[in-house]
Design a protein around this nucleic acid. Structure first.
Lengths: 165, 165
DNA sequence: ACAGCCTGCTTCGAATTCGAAGCAAGAGAT
DNA sequence: ATCTCTTGCTTCGAATTCGAAGCAGGCTGT
């Protein structure tokens, strides 16, 4: 097996660290804002946003979990909270007896709409403040193939229930 | 107060989402590897790495917390674990009676050295596999000013103990 | 020197997170 | 049809995380 280069060059290392720090800081700031604006955690916001984005306003549990890169059990917990808060509903999937479909409610949409502007403001102020439109495009062009590569590589949960033995 | 543009254009949104997803996926993969290779959490690894990087092999608690973007109490907990595992030591700071200096031990360095190659391999494989050296440089150039901007903006914990009232 | 505030860290309790184990429904093979 | 493996989700317990409160040492002004 061809072991990749045993070390990263300084440029790579710098890029890596910067990437990690940027997203950490961004996430912290966003979390703060979301809590104030709508008492939502970041995960909850991501879930609502994804549901609100979907044409039908709903998704299956597994798709949600994969979408936000989150554990299944954690998702169950969070969706439970959202449901209790009346922001989403759980329904049995029509085609698959055991599948659960999560749907955003009007209340959920309202809350999402209420929180979004502030969210965008934070992201704009922190992330895009220093990036020209060209920069943004460049960044996207750079990261998109990386994301696709990552999505493909280890299917999120490589060794799930049982090793392939 | 001049509210920033009420919405992000599609390019920005795309870049933002991609950025978040990339780091989520990367982090997950890295976490997996670290657990296997040395039974370390990502935070613990970050702490050890930072200490190992420091010329003296040590840092004050607060600096560590800021460095990894982490809560103070959480840091106390994690450093406690690391200390129990013999990977770091806690000493009273010489100049400041209440400051605590954390120092990496030889055992810690050994473990770090044992874990690093795999870590680098994962990062290489996932992140840098699709990026040319030029791309890497571009990415770093793009993100560095952003990071500096973020560091400056809200000092990490903007409303700490008491609002500025 | 003293009072009052700020800082550095820890302790505490509550909330979140994950992985392993469990349960029920689908799918494939016999 | 039935057996078995797989898949979708939940439950469970343990570990981690955070924020608020607490404690002690430093700093400033008087």
């Amino acid at each position: 097996m061809p072991a990749p280069p045993p070390s990263l060059d300084p440029a790579q290392l710098g890029a890596y660290f910067t990437l990690v720090e940027v997203t950490s800081l961004l996430r912290h700031a966003v979390e703060q804002q979301l809590k104030e604006a709508g008492d939502l955690s970041y995960v909850q916001f991501q879930l609502l946003a994804r549901l609100g984005d979907a044409p039908t306003g709903s998704h299956r549990m597994t798709d949600l979990a994969d979408g936000v890169v989150y554990s299944r059990s954690g998702l169950t917990y969070q969706v439970g909270l959202l449901e209790k808060a009346g922001l989403v509903t759980r329904t049995q999937s029509p085609d698959d007896e055991r599948g659960v479909t999560v749907t955003i409610t009007d209340t959920g949409r309202t809350l999402l709409a209420q929180v979004l502007p502030g969210h965008i403001e934070v992201v704009s102020g922190l992330l895009f403040d220093r990036l020209s439109p060209d920069d943004v495009q460049t960044l996207a062009d750079l990261l998109t193939p990386v994301r696709d590569h990552m999505r493909a590589a280890p299917p999120r949960s490589a060794a799930p229930r049982r090793r392939k033995r």
